[in-house]
Structure formats: C-alpha cells, structure tokens
Design a protein around this nucleic acid. Structure first.
Lengths: 257, 257
DNA sequence: CGACGTGTTGCATCATGTGCAACGGTCATT
DNA sequence: AATGACCGTTGCACATGATGCAACACGTCG
C-alpha cells in the first residue's frame, strides 16, 4: 500500500539471507542506489539493520530485541480464552489451559463444564504432574537432560491403579506423547475422570502451553471422549497459529469482485 | 531520513509494549488515522504486524522468523576473524576460536603464532574438552542438567599433572568460570602451554563461541600471559557486539555544528 | 432511535521520495 | 605513479506518491 515502506520492508527478508552491500540491495529492490541508501539509513537509525566492518549491511540487534519483547508481552491466556470458550460451547466439557514453569505445571485458565457433575481444579494451582495429560505434553517438549533430571526428581503418588508408577514408565510415556503430538489421562488422577490434551506451540515450534478437555465417566466414556481428539487438536492448532502471529485463514492479495 | 519509513518503523517498538488499536497508534505517531492505517497495512502485508481477533494490532510472526533466519545465517567466524587477526598482530601469540556442538568443542578458526615455537591444533578438530579454556567457557554456559549430564559422561584423561581429574572437579571449575566470565588452561593439556580465554555472546546473552590466546612457557610465563586477559576480553566483547548487531561505539542523534 | 466511537474510502494538495549526474574515496591494474 | 574501475555518497529538479480532510459504514450504548 505504501510504496516507500513496502520497499524498505522488502530489504529485511533480503538481508535475512545474508549480508549484502548497497549495490546488491538496490539491484534486488529494482531502485536507484541513492534510494536504497536512504531506506537503509532509515532502517539503520531504527536499529533494524546493522552495518558491519566490511560496509555490508545485515539485520540488527533491535530486531532480536523486538522479537523477544513481543514474545514476553504475549499472553497465551488472552489469546487462547475465546477458543477455549468456543470449544466448551460445542462439547460442553471442562476445558483447561496449562503452562510449565519452574518444575511445575500450572493451570492458567479454565472453562467450567456445563454438565452438573464438575471436576475439581483451580486456576494457579499446580497440576498432578506425573499423570495429567497437559503435564505430559509440556514435559515431553523439554530438552532431554532436563526432562530426565526432572523425572528423576519427582514423586510418583499412586492416586489410582492407573497412575504413572515411576520415572522409567513416565519417561516412556513422555516419549510416546512427544511422538504422537497429543496426550491422555485415563483415570490416572481420579478413577472416574478422563482427559484428552493437545499442545500449543510458539513460532519456533516449542510447546508454550497445553490445553485439555476433561469429563467424568458418568457423562461420557473414555472412548467417547477420544472422539473429541481431532476437535481438541484443531483448537490447539488455531491457538498456536494466532499466538505465533500467523493468519489462521490464508489470505492473498485481496480481490474486489 | 525517510519520513514515511521512519513513521512505519516507529510503530514496531510501540506495538512491542503490547497490542494497540488504530487510534492509539495514530495518536502516538502524531499522524492522521488514515495514515496510520496505511502504514499498518503495509506492515501487515509483510507479516511484521498481525491483527488479532479483537481488531487490535500486535507484532507478527514474520519478525520471529526473520530474527531466527538471520541468526542461522550468521557466521561467527566471518565476523570474528578480523578481530582475531588484529589481536594476533598486537600480541603475537596463537589465537583460537571454538564452538560447542553435539557434546564436542571444535576449533573453527585459528591465527598462528608469530613466534617460532608453535602449538599443535587443527581447525575442525575436537578440543580436549575437559581441560581447554574455551571448552570450559562453552560448557559453563549450558543449562544445568545438560552440563551435569555431559560432565558425567566424559572421560578425564590425565594429559598432565594439572589436568582436570574428574567430573566433580570439572563442575566446580565450570561454576568458577561461569562466575568470573573468563577461563584459563595452565598446563592442563600440555605441560608447557598456557591459555587465557573469553566468551563471545549472542544478542540473548548466551555464549555462542569462545576465543583464546595460547603461548608456551618458553615464550611467556603464565603470569605474563594473564596480563593479556583484559585485551582478550575486550576483543571477545567487541566480537559479541558486532555479532549481535549492536554498534560498538554508541552514536546518538547526529548534530550538525 | 440518535449519538457516539470505531475502522474505512476517495480525493485534492503539496510535501516527500525519487532518479540523475557529479563527486570522492579505495583498490587493483598497467 | 598514473590510470581506471568500482562503490558509497551528496545535491538537486521533478513528479510521484504520501498526507490529512471530510464523508461513509459499521457496531455499540444510552
């Protein structure tokens, strides 16, 4: 829309490929050198572009700083919430959102079931880390040594007969979860409650949060709950896309009929 | 220099503080809404800005992608080389550049000593990881579980009487190195050779490489070599700054007399 | 229903970005 | 040394393209 800005911004991906000198930039933009110079200068003043010792230009530190700051100020919960609500409206069950922080997994959002029988949990409260579906997803994404160290450090309380018995079983389960990209908890925490969960990923592919749908046996069987898996995963993917700033629906150069 | 681009780029740090709507952006830029709209649209087309469901704008995924691509295509060696050469010109000793990769520390650049007595090493060859000064710096920066796991896995060959004897001593040494921000190897690999080393850090503060100056006892004593430490650190810092795209010399809004 | 507060569009004006040509530096070639 | 090629830089006249205005199109709230 704005030619000047358009040209200036086109320089960034160009420089991302590697450093380039003024002539190369001007050529690839299809503009006069003096024009390219002015654009580069402006980018330089904003720190988005840096001039290295051989006079060539490359992307500057400000870009990294911006990207980092943007990530920090990004609130997964804020973005996820409407999606969670929508999911709850279509399936009716309890929906949870959780993150990993300092050797704990915490619920940071929850939409209550619309069925009379509800499950107990509280926002901000640590999750039963060895059995919860969301915990499995979050831990499965940790770097291997950290995951192993954490697994060794944990207690493995036998909430039910189906609880994860110890570190080896847990690590094996995490490997499976990591592989398949989703997780379940079938009566591992409370005998009669099942969950299915899916990961929410940031722009770099790392798991930043996990969401789950939980329901007691008296409402739906585990098998019935599992039929919701595709829906849960689609929701999680939608959140991932919005969180990482990619448009959910691909829109190309807008056409007017 | 270019007003339009200048305004457009000013939007980015503004949005980094948090999402904002059209009016807020226009106000803080001091321009008409229609102008702000056009700028935002252009930024949007380039993916630098994303419009979330509540119509507010935030920084877009492309920003992360660009930063990431730029980092990947960045060659430490290319940037460091002239600095290494300059250091070698002033002190005359062998200068090394090394990185950590897959449980190994590798030399990726070397400037030969100008003294007749030279030390043996080859670019691309793994470093004596338990004793080399550069290795200590690189391993000291690993996340704690990974560092511990690696230390346990290593062999601790006794090259000399001063070699690191085992994992506990090594971890303790790494803690010291991490604390002080530099490292030495005083006859730990070859009885008569000493090194001082300093870390090179990326924009996020993580150690991406390490450089060292090495000299045999017959040329300079360990104490004499240590007097070079400030110079080595300054060189490493200069490389860090250039690598992470920050200007080495701070320049403010240019004044015309 | 009307009065907001939004985001959006078309348009006339002229500020702004543009390409040109000329200058000045560095390096390699003879 | 002298020459020429190459690259970054500067000043300037021109007209292109960015600007703000006013009007429109929504949606929300009182």
């Amino acid at each position: 829309m704005s030619q000047t800005v358009d040209r200036a911004l086109s320089i960034l991906p160009l420089l991302a490929e590697g450093p380039a000198d003024l002539g190369q930039v001007a050529d690839r933009l299809g503009v006069h050198k003096s024009t390219a110079l002015r654009l580069l200068r402006t980018l330089h003043e904003h720190g988005l572009v840096y001039r290295q010792s051989d006079q060539r230009y490359r992307l500057g530190a400000r870009l990294f700083a911006l990207a980092q700051e943007a990530v920090e100020n990004l609130d997964v919960r804020e973005i996820a919430h409407p999606h969670l609500v929508r999911l709850n409206e279509t399936c009716g069950h309890t929906v949870h959102l959780a993150v990993y922080e300092e050797n704990e997994v915490l619920y940071i959002d929850k939409v209550e079931s619309r069925y009379p029988v509800r499950m107990y949990s509280r926002i901000g409260k640590p999750v039963a880390i060895t059995v919860a579906a969301v915990a499995k997803l979050l831990l499965a994404d940790l770097p291997e040594p950290e995951r192993r160290a954490l697994a060794d450090k944990l207690d493995y309380p036998l909430y039910t007969a189906r609880s994860t018995p110890g570190a080896p079983a847990f690590l094996k389960e995490l490997a499976t979860v990591r592989e398949q990209g989703w997780a379940t908890d079938l009566g591992g925490h409370e005998e009669s409650i099942n969950c299915v969960a899916a990961p929410i990923r940031g722009a770099d592919g790392r798991v930043v949060a996990a969401m789950s749908v939980s329901a007691p046996n008296v409402v739906v069987t585990a098998d019935e709950l599992l039929t919701l898996l595709p829906l849960v995963r689609r929701t999680a993917d939608a959140i991932s896309h919005e969180y990482s700033g990619k448009p959910p629906a691909k829109e190309e150069s807008p056409r007017r009929p």
